[in-house]
Computed example of a mutant assay.
Amino acid sequence: MIRFEHVTKKYEDGTTAVDNLSFEVADGELVTLVGPSGCGKTTTMKMVNRLIEPTAGRIFLGGDDISAVDPVELRRRIGYVIQQVGLFPHRTVLDNTATVPHLLGVKRATARARAAELLDLVGLDPAVYGGRYPEQLSGGQRQRVGVARALAADPPVLLMDEPFGAVDPVVRERLQNEFLTLQKSLRKTVLFVTHDLEEAVRLGDRIAVYGQGSIEQFDAPAVVLGAPATPYVADFVGSDRGLKRLSVTPVEPGDLEQPPVVHTDDPLPSGLTHWAVVLDPGGRPHGWISAEQASLARGTVGEHAHRMDARLPVGASLKQAFATMLQYDAGWIAVTDEADNGRFLGVLTPARLHEALRRSTAADAQDIPRDEVELETVSGR
């Protein structure tokens, strides 16, 4: 969808903002551009909608050389979201969102109906917020309106320049979650500029790590964290990149242990060594029971099972798994298949979590599937 071919941007004072840049962004892909201030990432983005013109090289959008496209027409094909949003203070939220369709000649009623749909899509009830003005909204709400306005003309491409950088960390995480959910359904082609590596890792299908005016590494987040291409990238992602990698490494069925299992309507078992997971009639986690409790009590398993709160779905990140363990002070968490009505798959322990992280890192380094990795172990006496 977006292709850079040997693009350079030099200014009259001799500064080279971008130097011989070549990369592609696939249709429906979200690519994050990350790097320190002044590295050229925002310049790269602004050249896509011709707010900045390149000195050399060519940029293609959907197969068209953008230098041959009228800038106004080009920008109508691109949604643009910036940190400070840029809403019109004298227009309501609904009219702000309907701005671009209205400029494109869409009838006012149709444009407003589309705006109402999009406000609802980004979590703002149009009946509640549509008639308000930007000053009546929180920072997070204004950012949602900015995203809705960028989507109003249904552009194939979104350019997002530090869109969540001006809100507090809690709101920022919520906006990131909402945007990821939105992107899963809309599959827009997105260039997303950020200086925050964790945000880049969390959102991007691929990450472009910028040095000074050039890309040092362009790869999947897990690869950037697990196998930095250059000393610069290794220094940029930091010595704690293993911890950051937890957020992009999913829990897979092969990571799980298979403990003893009993069911709620079973009589209390007499042969337990330590504990067992208790399942309901549908095969979903109900709780757990200890060997001591099973040996001392009478009745059915379901009558004596402990509640089990430490659980998460397969495919969740290792970071979520670790956080769940800490939240419930749990030595293991139950993992379920939400696509199969929450069926129990196994348990993840701290040791297996660590092993999953090691396998993921080794798999990327060797370019093989995780289940084919053979880990070295150190045995002692």
Results as ranks from 00 to 15, higher is better:
Glu135Asn: 15
Val248His: 02
Thr110Pro: 00
Val278Tyr: 09
Ala115Asn: 01
Asp219Val: 02
Asp125Glu: 08
Leu197Lys: 06
Leu61Phe: 12
Ala127Leu: 13
Val170Pro: 08
Tyr328Lys: 09
Val25His: 06
Ala153Glu: 08
Val277Leu: 13
Ala276Pro: 00
Asp196Pro: 11
Gly346His: 04
Glu162Arg: 06
Trp275Pro: 05
Asn341Arg: 15
Leu103Glu: 10
Val347Lys: 05
Val262Glu: 09
Val128Pro: 01
Thr324Met: 12
Tyr232Pro: 03
Met47Pro: 07
Leu203Gln: 08
Phe236Trp: 04
Thr8Met: 06
His304Ile: 13
Ala305Met: 02
Arg284Pro: 06
Leu348Arg: 07
Gly62Arg: 02
Asp19Gly: 02
Val237Thr: 05
Asp329Cys: 02
Val25Asp: 08
Gly57Ala: 06
Arg381Trp: 14
Pro221Ala: 09
Phe192Thr: 05
Asp329His: 11
Ile2Phe: 00
Gln141Thr: 02
Glu173Leu: 14
Phe60Tyr: 15
Ala310Cys: 05
Phe23Met: 05
Ser22Lys: 00
Arg149Val: 12
Phe218Trp: 01
Val378Glu: 10
Thr194Met: 08
Leu158Glu: 07
Gln183Pro: 03
Asp125Leu: 06
Arg91Lys: 14
Leu30Lys: 03
Val157Pro: 13
Thr55Phe: 04
Ala220Leu: 12
Gly86Lys: 04
Asp280Pro: 06
Thr336Glu: 11
Val190Tyr: 00
Thr264Trp: 00
Met160Tyr: 10
Ala152Ile: 06
Arg241Ser: 15
Pro369Trp: 08
Ser360Gly: 12
Val224Cys: 13
Leu268Thr: 04
Gly40Ile: 03
Lys188Phe: 05
Thr249Arg: 11
Val106Glu: 13
Leu158Pro: 00
Leu357Lys: 09
Trp288Gln: 11
Glu292Gly: 10
Val190Gly: 01
Leu197Pro: 00
Lys9Val: 10
Ala56Cys: 04
Glu292Asp: 15
His102Lys: 15
Glu199His: 04
Gly315Phe: 06
Asp27Trp: 11
Asn96Thr: 08
Pro260Ala: 12
His90Leu: 10
Leu103Ile: 00
Thr43Tyr: 04
Leu353Tyr: 05
Leu103Thr: 00
Val373Phe: 04
Ala152Cys: 06
Asp371Met: 08
His354Phe: 12
Ala150Trp: 07
Gly213Ser: 05
Arg149Phe: 02
Lys244Gln: 13
Ala148Thr: 03
Leu87Gln: 08
Thr349Asp: 00
Glu162Lys: 01
